[in-house]
Design a protein around this nucleic acid. Structure first.
Lengths: 304, 304
DNA sequence: GCACGACACAACCAGCGGTTGTGCGGATAT
DNA sequence: ATATCCGCACAACCGCTGGTTGTGTCGTGC
């Protein structure tokens, strides 16, 4: 590919060969094999060089795009000058969506999303420099943030109740958390020891709920399958969480009111991190554009 | 790259190997060499398979993008089911910009842009099926369109007068074409025998102008250099033409009025062409959204 | 008409990238 | 606690890809 682009730009195989530090015959062979694999002629050979055919013209921008994609891929893991790497809880959850907004606002800053299991792993990764920022709920009881980690309350996400069409509360416009006492709430994805588990534990205690985390976690699809078909089983889901479920499933998002439990997404970073785009990220999420203390909301007492 | 993506999806080198129809050892070697060239570890090897590291997680979407770019590149030259291929006069000229609008409206249709020298070459390419459509000014005198080629007047582009800051007309709000008689108009890019040359020849004749096409064509940059520094040399340029010139150059676009010469861009296609996206393209440009007969405009008499 | 420039073809060879065979370590089972 | 299995890494081997040098061919320009 690189040979093709170089030859197309140079207009002569000879010049491309010197650019690439190989012989003219090597360039000729590379182009020939590329043409053979594609099944089309890319150059018309003339006495004064090689000109692109129509197919070659159409192919050229795609070849350039391929080389750029390669450069981006390499840059994404290049230590030191790689793109800003942010840990989100999951790619379909609210922080990932919020980062899309940030990326639209700052397209010049490269952005890579990774997912880690819990806040402790995230802090280790922040310290080692493998990630630059992390969206977490801080801090869990008994685990205050260390001094070298900075944190901003980024935004709050209302929690919703997700049911199938046959569920008793399926047609409710909204429900109070206390009304859910006695209902079966199933969250098999919760990993013990993580801060999101601490959040939902506190939520359950505060309103007298019982959350079942029994059973293996097969991912969201089987969970949604089960919830959609059940008259009694339901689950919690963030308002911003993008769920993909088969078209035949009819799932209902029921808002919670009086109070509305909100999940507190905080932005964490390491104070020694000098990544150029990190400042912009902090400003984007720490500029007070989110209301952290809306009336009628609930968070665990340990939330900053 | 494909091995990396497959292994990341499978979670086990073994499974990836069977998917790729090679041995596990080959996969192991490929991943090892990839890690070596990148200088980072992409997988953590466990007893139950291989999991992505943080670097691997960040690398994965870029690797996927690379494979997709490869697929698009191949598809762009795949005979039969390739993307819609449209001939524009130049990548910075009005048809290319108009096609960007079309691509925004129909993102599902792949689109490749190529450039051919003149309408005859374009018609040959349309007949042979190497291109699907062409933007041209039709028809030149004495060269009516053949029956197997369809044409629609797509849109008209006003012609402007481009001068440097020292030119006599640099500060004019607008000029009449007839006022340009006696001024030096330089268009070294015009190729004799092409329809755009025929257009400007007619324009010159109609208003008593003299257009110099002397001197070799070194591209737009040297042309703009010369025009920017000259007190007497100027040139014609399409209103939609995107020119890139160094910041130190101060070029002026002077609109033409009474009448406004417009360049008639027509869309050409072959009547036997059954490309699925060609219909959409014809509808996009043939739906009467452009005013073809605005008062006060001028076109050569031979324009359809 | 001849020299020159540019690409293609032929022969040759190193090394990349595959294979088979085996070793090693962690997780599970007995 | 120990045996067993599963999955990945390492070693040896080898064919074929992809490079080199040398030469041929063709169109262009003096």
């Amino acid at each position: 590919m690189r040979t093709f682009v170089t030859a197309a730009e140079a207009g002569r195989f000879q010049d491309a060969a010197t650019d690439l530090a190989v012989t003219q015959q090597a360039v000729s062979k590379r182009i020939a094999t590329l043409e053979k694999t594609l099944g089309v002629r890319l150059f018309t050979r003339t006495a004064r060089g090689a000109k692109l055919t129509i197919d070659g013209q159409a192919f050229l921008p795609h070849a350039r795009e391929l080389l750029q994609a390669e450069a981006r891929a390499i840059a994404s893991v290049c230590p030191g000058r790689r793109a800003l790497r942010v840990d989100v809880i999951g790619r379909r959850l609210a922080p990932a969506g919020a980062l899309r907004d940030f990326h639209r606002a700052h397209p010049e800053a490269g952005l890579d999303l990774v997912t880690l299991v819990d806040v402790d792993t995230a802090i280790d990764a922040l310290r080692s420099g493998t990630i630059d920022a992390s969206f977490r709920a801080v801090t869990m009881p008994g685990r205050e943030l260390p001094d070298d980690i900075g944190a901003t309350r980024a935004f709050d996400e209302p929690v919703q109740f997700l049911t199938g069409p046959a569920h008793e509360l399926a047609t409710a416009r909204a429900v109070m958390p206390a009304e859910l006492a006695g209902h079966r709430i199933w969250m098999p994805g919760l990993v013990p020891g993580t801060e999101s588990t601490a959040y939902y534990d506190d939520l359950a205690t505060a309103f007298g709920l019982t959350i079942e985390i029994t059973g293996p976690d097969f991912g969201t699809e089987p969970l949604l399958d089960t919830v959609a078909d059940s008259r009694s089983l339901a689950t919690f889901v963030g308002e911003q969480t993008r769920l993909v479920w088969p078209a035949e499933h009819d799932l209902r998002r029921i808002p919670l009111r009086d109070p509305t439990p909100v999940y507190p997404h905080s932005l964490l970073w390491h104070r020694d991190n000098r990544h150029p785009a990190l400042d912009a990220l902090r400003r984007h999420f720490g500029s007070g554009r989110f209301d952290h203390s809306a009336a009628g909301t609930w968070t665990p007492a340990w939330v900053h």
